[in-house]
Design a protein around this nucleic acid. Structure first.
Length: 546
DNA sequence: CAGTGACCGC
């Protein structure tokens, strides 16, 4: 035993040590403090070790969490606070399963869990998500009497909503009419939207006694996730009419909706709003803006937003690469791909999809093949279905049909409709009727055929003057009752969203003749430039406005 | 002698 003067001296020292934690910017400093505490013996005090673990669990310094975890394992005296903090740290850092394992050993050592324990454990269950473990935790929640505590209740509703168990979520919600708050409502609503029960979500949203910016954003993004973009934009406007200033999540949802609708005016307005309100243009928001401008046809503005971003990550680069490739600027897309790696940003699997399709459009077979190889050899990314689709497209467009066929035969997974579709398209462009027929057959075998596939084959027979083939395909289509779903496209004109539907003559419009003559003119012009066959416009496209 | 939650990009 230390004499009491020593003890109080060491306590003072350790308190000073702990206050230094807030100023640490490197793990080395944490370890220094910890070794002082170890030498003085004060680390044995669970309050002191708890402070260290709490710092490690919530810090974003490299290896902080694993350092905290190894200290946790060595501790003789743990408190509920220490257990909770460890569970929280693991759950917040993508190690939810480990978090639950720690919770189990907490119960095994007879430590009573409290309200904090359950809010962290339920979060871990929702992160996985694992309904089976979640149900067991719910049992524990009831056993220890925390079911109506607001944080725990909301954790449960969130868990069930995440696991698509809307009946359970709703039952809890109904049971707790005194304890529920705006967060309970928001969790429930976003659960209904994610399970595509939009009508119920909308109804609850209207009934909510108080809405805040998060509730509005949840509903906006819910609409975006299920593809109801116009509703999302209406809500975005409605929220401001109600005097709620949109936050980053709401703005991102609205920008995504603009990108899909081609609603450039709205998108520009949101961009101006961001600048007017000095909302920080971070990587997420910057990427959403780049994407919106690129998809609305303003590639120059997309580039300037990109240039003005201070720290660009893989998503920002990928978004612009994709935009450039889609605007026929494949050369610039490839340059940007090189620049990205020179700046030390590692491409991800989506980047490779964009860059491979850029190569494919430029006819850069050698380069595309090299990049495809580099995926696994240099970047540790195993090519997936879509990458094989790009590869088949790359070879097929260049007329290397045998090589493309070989890729389909030897790829490590069963080809999907896009991979076979790329092969079929190559057969069409290069007039290989025989391989085209084989490809359609393998599509049919896998039940991946749709009307368009058969129409394409029939057109191929027609181009090759094989009229018996045409008749056979058409008859087969009639027997199977296949119909091609018409293509459609959206564009904003003078603030109004217009929908173009291929071949739709049900809603004749005054501008139709004028539009059609323009289309034919563009078509002729493109043909005179002898551009890629894909660029020609299908005659008979029709405009219907609403 | 402590501390927690709902919405968000390729």
């Amino acid at each position: 035993m230390l004499p009491s003067t020593f003890a109080s001296k060491y306590l003072k020292v350790s308190r000073r040590m702990l206050s230094l934690l807030d100023h640490c910017h490197h793990m080395r400093q944490i370890k220094q403090i910890q070794s002082h505490l170890t030498v003085s013996g004060t680390l044995l005090d669970p309050y002191v070790s708890g402070k260290i673990i709490s710092f490690c669990a919530t810090s974003h310094l490299d290896d902080a969490l694993s350092h905290g975890y190894s200290l946790f394992l060595r501790l003789q005296n743990r408190t509920t606070f220490i257990w909770n903090t460890m569970i929280r740290g693991l759950a917040e850092n993508n190690q939810s399963f480990k978090a639950i394992t720690i919770y189990k050993s907490m119960l095994d050592t007879y430590f009573p869990p409290n309200n904090y324990t359950f809010s962290f454990v339920l979060r871990a269950c929702a992160n996985l998500p694992d309904l089976f473990i979640g149900l067991q935790c719910h049992g524990q929640v009831i056993k220890y009497g925390w079911e109506s505590y607001d944080f725990v209740l909301n954790g449960l509703v969130h868990l069930y909503a995440t696991c698509n168990c809307m009946d359970s979520a709703k039952r809890l919600f109904d049971m707790s009419d005194v304890n529920r708050d705006v967060i309970t409502w928001t969790s429930l609503i976003s659960g209904y939207v994610k399970s595509r029960q939009v009508a119920i979500a909308q109804q609850l949203f209207d009934q909510m006694p108080e809405k805040n910016v998060v509730s509005w954003s949840a509903m906006i993004n819910g609409y975006v996730q299920i593809g109801m973009f116009e509703e999302a934009l209406e809500l975005f406007n409605g929220m401001q009419t109600c005097g709620v200033q949109p936050n980053q999540a709401g703005i991102i949802g609205a920008l995504t909706a603009c990108a899909f609708l081609g609603a450039l005016d709205q998108g520009r307005w949101i961009h101006a709003y961001i600048e007017r309100n000095k909302i920080e243009l971070d990587r997420v928001l910057g990427t959403a803006l780049i994407d919106m401008y690129a998809k609305c046809g303003c590639i120059e503005t997309a580039i300037s937003v990109f240039d003005n971003m201070s720290n660009r990550d893989v998503f920002a680069f990928t978004s612009l690469i994709s935009g450039l490739a889609n605007h026929g600027q494949s050369g610039s897309a490839i340059e940007l791909f090189v620049r990205m790696q020179n700046e030390g940003v590692a491409p991800n699997e989506v980047t490779f999809i964009c860059i491979l399709s850029a190569c494919s459009r430029m006819g850069l077979v050698e380069k595309g093949l090299r990049i495809f190889k580099s995926m696994s050899e240099m970047h540790g990314i195993e090519p997936g279905m879509q990458h094989y689709g790009c590869l088949v497209d790359l070879l097929g467009r260049a007329g290397l049909l045998e090589e493309a066929k070989k890729v389909v035969r030897e790829m490590p997974m069963e080809p999907d409709s896009y991979v076979l579709g790329a092969l079929l398209n190559a057969c069409r462009v290069h007039g290989n009727v025989e391989l085209g027929k084989e490809t359609v057959e393998s599509l049919v075998e896998r039940s991946l055929d749709h009307g368009g596939v058969h129409v394409l084959l029939s057109n191929m027979y027609a181009s090759a003057n094989q009229w018996d083939g045409v008749v056979k395909v058409r008859k087969g289509m009639g027997d199977k009752n296949v119909r091609k779903i018409p293509g459609c496209s959206l564009i904003e004109v003078d603030g109004m969203v217009c929908e173009f539907v291929c071949g739709d003559r049900s809603q004749p419009h005054l501008l139709m003749e004028e539009t059609e003559s323009w289309l034919i003119g563009i078509d002729k012009h493109l043909k005179s430039l002898s551009l890629d066959d894909d660029m020609t416009i299908k005659r008979g496209s029709l405009l219907s406005c609403y």
